[in-house]
């Protein structure tokens, strides 16, 4: 009986946590949409804000819904490598693009 009760408690805790995550994600999404229409002078700032909001949402989903906040080391190390190589792919491509000399002149 006690066992069943504690399982029920765990479930309720999950419900509460899920509800919070969903509400925060929804709020951040709406803020993000707001930022897209806000009268900001700097387009870079706007993009930065939007991506930061998206990153925060992603953190919530990955951290809480995918339990990444309490995961095993084997998975952390795997993801660390993945993130690193992802950054290398994106970063070096962008760098290569930026470092390409204009055709016809130096």
């Amino acid at each position: 009986m006690k066992e069943a009760l504690s399982k029920e408690d765990v479930y309720r805790a999950a419900v509460v946590r899920c509800r919070t995550v969903l509400l925060v994600v929804a709020a951040v999404t709406l803020c993000m949409v707001g930022a897209a229409y806000a009268p900001l002078a700097e387009p870079g700032l706007r993009t930065g804000l939007i991506l930061a909001a998206a990153g925060f949402n992603a953190f919530l989903v990955a951290g809480h819904l995918m339990h990444l906040l309490q995961e095993r080391n084997v998975i952390y190390s795997l993801l660390a490598f993945t993130v690193l190589f992802f950054a290398a792919l994106m970063g070096l491509c962008i760098w290569a693009h930026g470092d390409t000399p204009a055709p016809g002149g130096v």
Binding site: G98, D99, T100
Partner: peptide, 8 residues
């Protein structure tokens, strides 16, 4: 040989 810059 694709014309990439010297830094990269």
């Amino acid at each position: 040989l694709t014309g990439m810059g010297t830094r990269i």
